[in-house]
Design a protein around this nucleic acid. Structure first.
Lengths: 123, 123
DNA sequence: CGGGATCCAGTAGGATACTG
DNA sequence: CAGTATCCTACTGGATCCCG
């Protein structure tokens, strides 16, 4: 895709599809936490601030379904399961990391913009 | 932020905040369509496949609130309004374009992975 | 420990009609 | 043309309990 022009409508649907899959509240955060680190369920849970057990389980399953992470059952009783980004997942993680860096860099600016907007439009 | 390590929990919240703002169904698509192109309301609507009038109006207002786009009223009656990415919006658009390119490149792989997963887990 | 099942609330998002 | 107002539905995500 040309970087200087908007995508074609057909492309838009594909982009929309991928975005709506990873653009939920948790997927990208899980990808970030797993970046270069094979981790177990509760380790990921600690890493992702505020996620519930169920949402983590759901998110991991969807990411596994897309082939972005791989699930390893280490032991059955007591259960030990760990997760790791696949090659595909790692390539996505790079893009997500770039977006995350942008977010950290510009978070304050965004907050200030919102505050200013709300003040001038509160009528 | 270091690209090889997961972000700190405090950073995670900021990243989550930004992601939950632009990670909805439409924001990133609008940003893509506006990339390097000042456009009017209905032009954007044509560019973003399937968006309703209301959702476009809502999305544009939120993006303007964050200072990512600027709104220009050209005429009052009949109304003519156009939108353009700000410098901040352009810098975000770069990251979003990278993610969009990844999406186009790997869309087929993702679809196949899902299909395969669903077949082997349908029990 | 790593989930699954169930129930519930909040909100994102769609359809339609109306307006300056 | 570029919105706003209203209503409604569907889905996301949270809480809780249970299970091997």
């Amino acid at each position: 895709m040309n970087v200087t022009s908007p995508p074609a409508p057909r492309d838009c649907r594909k982009v929309s599809d991928v975005f709506s899959r990873i653009g939920d509240r948790w997927s990208m955060q899980v990808i970030l936490v797993l970046n270069n680190q094979k981790q177990r369920f509760n380790e990921i849970k600690k890493g992702v601030n505020g996620i519930s057990q169920q949402m983590l389980a759901r998110t991991l399953k969807l990411l596994e379904r897309d082939g972005l992470i791989e699930r390893f059952v280490l032991d059955a009783s007591p259960p030990k399961v760990s997760y790791e980004l696949t090659t595909l997942g790692l390539s996505l993680a790079e893009q997500v990391m770039a977006l995350a860096s942008w977010s950290l860099l510009n978070f304050e600016t965004l907050s200030q913009n919102r505050e200013r907007y709300d003040k001038t439009h509160e009528n």
